[in-house]
Design a binder for these strands. Structure first.
Lengths: 242, 242
DNA sequence: CAGTGGTCTAGACCACATG
DNA sequence: ATGTGGTCTAGACCACTGC
């Protein structure tokens, strides 16, 4: 009855999120301070409790506010450990037209002790072995090594090779998708061999992104890592509103 | 009318999230496959559309499902670039009783060209200079350097020194909280000087966590970085349900 | 057209905190 | 007892898709 909903491209809950977020950013609501109660907000924005609550839940998820039952809602002070690094951001900055993907090797090898342990297969078992190099402006930037479970019934290698096209290099990392994975990020010094491939001096620092993908019941299906030149890759996080 | 709500510690929307999440994890809903419609779900779980929607929104935020207007809801295949690294996890693993914090230096210095640029003050301006060392099991593990805007009116140094107590080292990183910050994570090779402080050979790899905190109107207020031994620090992300 | 996702209401009820 | 956060309903309306 109140009024026809104006088919806004921006839904009410999103508008409220933006408004409150801006107020926190501008200092209108001070850090640690108390916000108006939910009923006050409902009155101000002219929405029902459900809609207002939805907005608050989003702000809570973003870490901008905290709520305490019976007491009120407060601006949550920003804290260093809140930092969140998204691999997507890194990939987004890196991948553009200047990037070329090169397949260095695609073969099957007998699993070494280490590989056998990671993929949970008997030592010496045949596994797919892949090595790729990403060049940016014609210069080596990222080196990728991967071991994949070998299944003679399926054209695994085939789906792997498609990834040379850069589409979905970091995007799917598998032709088929898997339900689980564990990713580890660390700093390393490049071995002489790896340094040569990347055109860097030996012992140069690099970011290492190790990945293990698992099937629902079979366990580990793929193990590999990306070596990224330290001067080209960094992860960035932003704290606070906006 | 339907029935008394059984004061469950687990709200209905959370239970639905868990249930659907488990089904995806177990493969009951296949990757990329279509889920039952919202009305079917409402019938199955005996909740209203709003509640069911809330659950779906959470699953969307977690990246487990995607929705397409007019078509349906689908299991979202897991993708490498979805990886999210939380500094909180790293801090949680590292900080325990075996960690000791040591203040190496707290003084004021004239801002170098670099420092002046980062804090946007005239070169030579007095700024607070802090150096700290975190030891784990009596061995150096993390080295922290920080420059802070010097405000004679406020006991900035005082609030800094409190951080030696480890409580809120990564936790608040500031005595007072600031609304904004930018954090950058990269791999570096330790300089001879830094390597000595950390008890490592020169050129050893390390994770560098650089941070800039900003006030609402003043701009940058603090600039610094953590150097973390590569053998002690790594960030881990998990893909998929659970 | 019917089915699907997506937003929203105007209440209701509960648990907790404060005086 | 009052005010706070927190969950939920039973509908409604809209936009989009596909037949």
């Amino acid at each position: 009855m109140p009024k026809a909903n104006d088919s806004q491209p921006v839904p009410a809950y999103a508008h409220i999120v933006n408004t409150i977020s801006d107020r926190i950013a501008s200092g209108a609501y001070e850090a640690g301070g108390r916000l108006p109660s939910e009923s006050k907000f409902c009155a101000e924005f002219g929405v029902s409790p459900m809609t207002l609550r939805r907005s608050l839940n989003i702000l809570i998820a973003r870490g901008l506010i905290v709520t305490e039952k019976g007491k009120g809602t407060f601006v949550r002070p920003v804290v260093l450990k809140d930092s969140i690094f998204k691999l997507e951001d890194l990939a987004g900055e890196f991948f553009d037209e200047s990037v070329e993907m090169r397949l260095l090797e695609a073969s099957t090898v007998g699993a070494s002790e280490r590989v056998a342990a990671m993929l949970r297969v008997p030592q010496g078992e045949r596994v797919v072995y892949l090595r790729r190099l990403a060049l940016k402006h014609k210069k080596p930037a990222m080196y990728h090594v991967e071991y994949v479970l070998y299944d003679p019934r399926q054209p695994l290698v085939e789906s792997q090779l498609q990834l040379t096209t850069l589409d979905g290099f970091l995007e799917t990392a598998r032709g088929r998708s898997f339900p689980r994975g564990t990713i580890t990020l660390r700093a390393v010094a490049l071995s002489a061999k790896d340094a040569e491939i990347l055109g860097e001096p030996g012992d140069s620092p690099a970011l290492c992104l190790e990945h293990v993908f698992e099937d629902t019941e079979r366990g580990p299906v793929s193990w590999g890592w990306f070596l990224m030149r330290a001067d080209l890759f960094e992860l960035r996080a932003h704290l606070g509103p906006e």
